[in-house]
Each structure stands twice: as structure tokens, then as C-alpha cells.
Design a protein around this nucleic acid. Structure first.
Lengths: 212, 212, 212, 212
DNA sequence: GATGAATGAGGGTTCATTCAT
DNA sequence: AATGAATGAACCCTCATTCAT
């Protein structure tokens, strides 16, 4: 599972590399999200991470590398958290609702980073941009599988699965993109429930409606 | 209908200002959308517009001004086109469908500029960012009115209007954001129809379903 | 009496040239004095003179030309006013006092332009700078002649004439350079009297002291 | 003794800051004096100081900062050297002569920088200009104290102290402003003596004349 | 004679990246 | 491993000057 454009470090100790990179990326995500990729300087990142400029370049080849790892780490969180939310849940409809809620919850936790995804993916060099986009598609497929299972089991009407799932994704992202608007009106919990009322419930079959 | 932070020109003739600005903004939108705001240089914009760097600064105070006018012009197109699509249409449901389609159509025409909106609104200074966001809300309200009318007339079930409308907006935007994905599978026409099937039809009342 | 670096115009009518140039120089002196030569733009000068940029270039070859004529006009005023103040005055000591007072009076009238002389003479190209400096020396010689006459006639002790006269010049210039300081304490009239008390009276011979 | 608008550096080591700044200011004073503030480029300053453009900006926020420090350093030299020249001298008249000579000597050493003061103080932003002007007044007061002491002790006649002292200042400055003229005729030593003959000796009381 | 839109070289400034310590 | 001073290419912007009308 190697990235097509791997980030190289000049440091030997892998544990240290892991730790330092995480610190730098954490600082970078915050700054990139707040001010944007181009406006943020390496100096600022270094200061925010509590290290020197030079040291940043021991762990990343260039600024692009930092952005790439930042975006990658977001995707990985998506791909890690959603399956975890589904673990042990067996009923297709329950799985769909859990996945929907889990996705919203991850976005809520990574609100800043999600905005960053929208603003800055294009700042990556093409090859890496494609890698990021492929990751998004993998996440989408996790959701698509849930929807497809529900349809197959007769809980959901036949629908345009990719399009509907993409609406799920957009609904979740909107929580981050317009957080200033929604967060005044809804808790995350209610936001999720309203979303399911709009994007899941209307497509339930009579059989599906009998569940719960 | 005056912007809180108006863009001033050093040129007298208003017709010339209008024309030159349109040329510059057209070039800028293309370049900003393709490469991003910060990566695009004034040199590139000037060259693309077929004029000199200096002249750009006769029509815009600074680079921020160009971005602002670019984003503003997008908003104005939204606010102009949607009412036009509704002109002469009286049936509430027909109006809703027309507005939905019109919004998608504008986005289709301004695909690049729409992407720009997502990437670069944050690059504006706060006051102007707020102005742009207020413009977005105005557009949303156009759609919200259509939905509310349908509900009031008994064609649509009671729904969370702002949330549903925001899904309309996202659906339209997605046509621009993921155009590389959807345009291989759908024509705009079919995309709109699929969208209505997902985001309007499921909420029709029996009375609404009898229409058409 | 031709300047070694004459300012050429593209316009035929000499009367018009004279008038327009005077207008432009007047505007330029004010702006140069207030903001400095380099900070002042041709645009500003044109606007202040109530004409277009292009027209400035019909009467001056370049910006340096304007500065040159501005400084020249100051010198010419010196050289015109001092002899005029001496006209009809015959007693050597009276002539010296009149010249001293006249010089201060011109400086008072051309306060801004005098400051300009200090700041901007060096901005001229060398040849013209020399021309300006030669003009200053001519003015000084007017004063030196007055002092020398007084010495010759036994009203003043033998003194280092050029050095003393240069103090006269500096005393007058100081009225412009530090006008903010002196003008709060003295009227021009008293300033002149105090200056004479410091720079003329102490050098009077007994014969000189008997005068008046 | 802190400047109201302090110059900040991005470099930590204070010794290095001190040294580099001195190098840069030295180069800047020479270039500013020779060609003027606006004509001199940061490139030229950097090259003359033997460093890169970027480094200049590690030690100065902008070009204005360099000018400010240059002018400040001149003032500080005045305020340092004059008291030093008076150290150990007790007789009021001797102190006055020493101060007069010391001021001329400092001006001689900082000839270029003094000219810069005349040309470029106005290029500073107002707040800093005032600071510089306040420094000049402090220097003047050093001289005024010497004159006042002589008057009080009966060595000098009652005179307009501020005006006379300002003539001292101008006399010293003239050595820098017209150095091309005076230096051909006088050594500094003789220039000082001639100055004292014009601006001190005539005001001596009989008691004062008996000294030396 | 007069206008003012148009040009483009050049300056101040920033910041990713390097390298001596 | 770590520091942070040093570099210099590149960008935004200004403004003297020109030229079509």
C-alpha cells in the first residue's frame, strides 16, 4: 500500500520520523486551514511545531510534501474510522446509518482539515492530486457498499447509488464548510438525524420503514 | 446594490472600464481556476488579457480586487439567471424544477468560476469574504422561496427547507467540483433529472405526484 | 545668459510656453517641497496644474527638467529681488542691512522652494547641479560686495568676508529650514533684527557704530 | 533611552545584529549620501555590505528602517562625542571652544551622513522625523549650556543664546554641505578657528578677552 | 495644442530552501 | 540531530514616458 509519490526523510530512526512528522503535520494542518497553503510559511510551521526551519527539511523534502502528508492523513482517518464504526453492526440499514453518522463524526473532528482538502488539493502536483482523489473514491465506496447492501436486501428502493452517496459525502462536508452556519442551529447529533431524514428515509421501502 | 468595498478604477470612461474589466476578469477566472489564486501572476493575467501589467492596475487597485470582482461576477450571474428562468412560470412545482435546473445550468456555464469560489473565497480580506457569503445566502433564498411555496401549496411534504435547499446547492456545485467524474457519465440534462429524482421527487405529496 | 542645459519645449508660441511652464513649476514646487522630488509623480503635478499628463511633456522633456526649472526660478528670484531692494540706497551700511533683510524676505516668500533646494539639488544631473550652484555663488557675491564695501569704507572691521557672508546665507535659509521653530518665537522683522545683531553689529567699527 | 519606533530584527543573537546592522548602515549611509535615498536600491546596499538582499530584511523591516537607523546613529555620535570632548575641561570658555571644535570634528568625520540628514529626514514617516528632530534639539542644548555658562560667568556678553548656537550648528554643518568649497581653502583646524573668530570672539566681554 | 489610456522596466519585499556550525 | 543565519529567484506594484486620437 505504497503511495505513488512517497515522502522521503533524511533521518534514520523510523519512530522519530513518525513522531516528528505527526507534529509538523498537525501544526501545518492548523495553519493551512486557517490561512491557506500559500500564505502559510515554513517558518510559521516550524515555530508552531516548536522546532527549527532546518529540521522541517530533515523530515520533508519540500513544502508540497507537507501538504501531501497532511491531506493523506485526513483520508486515512476517514478510511480507518468508518470501518471501525461498522464493526459488529450487521443489519444493513443499521450499517448504513452508522456509516453516515461516522462519516459526519470524522468530518466534525477534522473540520479544519476537511476545509483544507477543498481549498488545497489542487495545489499538489498532478500525480499526488490523483492519489488523493483515489483515496476519496475509496471512502465513497465504503458508503456505496452500505447503500447497495440495503437495496439488495430490499430496505431501500433502487436508487442512483453513486449520486446518492455523493450527496451523503457533500452533506457531511457541508458540516465543515459551513460550520459557522449550521453549528449555531444544530448539534452534530441533530444534524446527522436531519440528514438521514432527507437522504435516507425517503428512499426506504415499506420493508425498510418497518425496521426500528 | 453597492458593494461595501467597491473596486475603483483610475480610468474615466465607464464603458471602457466595463469592457476592460470584463476582459481581465475573464482571463483571471480561467487562470485562478486552473492554477489557483496565489500561483497565478499578474503578468500571466495581463498576457492572457492581451494587455500590459501596468494597465491591469489602472482598472484594479490590487490583485485582491481582481479576485473580488471575479467572485462577485459569479454571484451576480446566479442572481440574474435564476429569476430569469422563473419568468412566466407560475405553477409552484414547475417553478421549483425550473430554479433547480437553472442553477445547475449556470454552474455548468461558470464551471471554472464555481471551483474558484470554493478554493479562493478565503483569500479575500474578511470584509469582502462576508460580502460574498451574503451573496450566496441571497441565492439560496431564491431557492428556499420556491420550496416554501410548494410546501404551502401542498405539493411538497413539510421538510427542513434550508437544509434541503443547501443539498440542491451542493448538488449543483458538485457538477463543477467533480465535473471530470460526472460529465463522463451524464449530460447536464440527465444530471439535472437525476438530481430532481433524488432531491425533489421523494418529497412530493400525493397531490404533488399528480402534477405533470 | 543662456543656461548650459536649456529646457526645450515642443510648443511654438513662446508666450504660452512661458505661462504654462510657470503654472507647472508652481504646482511642482509645492508638491516637491511638501513630499519630495521622487515621491511626487507627474500625474500629481499635472492634476495640480489642472492639465493632462501628456501636456506636461509638451513643455518639459522629462521630470528632471521640471526640477531644474523649479530650482532655477528660485535662484532668479534671489538675483532679482536683492538688487531691487538696494535700488536707491547709497550708504554702504544701509545697503548691507537692506541686502540682509531682502534675502531673508525672499526666503520667507519662497520658504517651500528653499527647502526644496536643500533636498533636491543633488537629484539633478551633474551639469545642471553645477549651474544651480553657480547661481548660488552669484547671489552670495551680491552680499559679499555689500560687506566688502562696508569694510573698504571703514564701517566694518576686516573680516573673513566669504565665511561671514555664508553665515548670512545660512541664517536666512534657517528661517525656511526651521520655520516651524522660529516662526513661533519671532516675526520675520524681529528675526532679521536679531540676525543683524549677531552677524553685523559685532563687526562694526567705531565709525560704523556711529551710523544711524 | 528607547526610540519611539524601534527597529526590530528577525535575528536572535544581539551581537550579530549589532555588527550586521552597523555594516548595512555604513553601506547605506555612503550610498544614500552619494545618490540619495530614493535612487539607492536595496540591491546596491546589500552588494556594498557584501551580503544578500534577503539578509538585509532579516535586520531591517523595510527601507525606511535603514534610513532611520542611519540618521539615528549620526545623532548618537553627536551626543556621545561632544560630552566626551568636554570631559576634564572646566573653564567655561574653554568648554565652549572645545564643544564648538568637537561638533565640527564630528561633522567632519560624518560628512556624508550629515548631508544625508539634510536631504532625507523628510523621507521618514512623521513619527520618526519628530524623533530625529528631537535628537537635534538635544545636541543643540549641549551647546546652549556651554554658552549660557559663559554668559553667567561673565565671559560672554548677553546674547540670543538659541539663535547664536544655531549659527554654530549651521557653521559646522556648512563644513559638510559645502565641503567641496571650504576644504580647498581651509584645513578643519583653521575652519574651526575662523568660525570661533566670527561666532565666539566678537561676543567676549573684556573679562572673556583676557582669558588665554 | 491637448488628452489620458497604455506601456514596461525596475524597485521593494517575501519566503522556500540550503548549509555551516 | 538540530539550529537558524544566509541566499536569491520571483512577485506585486509604481510611475516616467509614449502615442493614438
Amino acid at each position: 500500500m505504497k503511495s505513488p509519490a512517497d515522502v522521503e526523510a533524511r533521518i534514520g530512526d523510523p519512530a522519530l520520523v513518525e513522531q516528528r512528522r505527526a507534529e509538523i503535520v498537525r501544526a501545518a494542518v492548523r495553519l493551512f486551514s486557517e490561512h491557506g497553503y500559500y500564505v502559510t510559511t515554513i517558518q510559521q510551521i516550524a515555530r508552531a511545531a516548536g522546532i527549527s526551519v532546518g529540521l522541517v527539511y530533515q523530515y520533508f523534502r519540500d513544502k508540497d510534501d507537507i501538504l501531501f502528508l497532511a491531506l493523506t492523513s485526513v483520508l486515512e482517518t476517514y478510511e480507518r474510522e468508518i470501518p471501525r464504526a461498522l464493526a459488529g453492526v450487521t443489519h444493513p440499514l443499521a450499517r448504513l446509518r452508522a456509516a453516515f453518522a461516522a462519516y459526519c463524526a470524522v468530518i466534525d473532528r477534522l473540520r479544519e482539515a476537511t476545509v483544507l482538502t477543498y481549498r488545497s488539493t489542487k495545489s499538489l502536483r498532478p500525480e499526488r492530486r490523483r492519489y488523493i482523489m483515489a483515496g476519496e473514491r475509496r471512502t465513497n465506496r465504503l458508503l456505496e457498499a452500505c447503500v447497495a447492501d440495503c437495496v439488495r436486501a430490499g430496505y431501500l428502493r433502487r436508487v442512483n447509488v453513486p449520486l446518492l452517496v455523493y450527496q451523503y459525502v457533500l452533506f457531511a462536508h457541508a458540516w465543515a464548510l459551513k460550520s459557522w452556519a449550521w453549528r449555531r442551529r444544530y448539534t452534530l447529533r441533530r444534524y446527522v438525524r436531519e440528514g438521514q431524514a432527507l437522504l435516507i428515509d425517503p428512499f426506504l421501502t415499506p420493508k425498510g420503514r418497518r425496521v426500528r
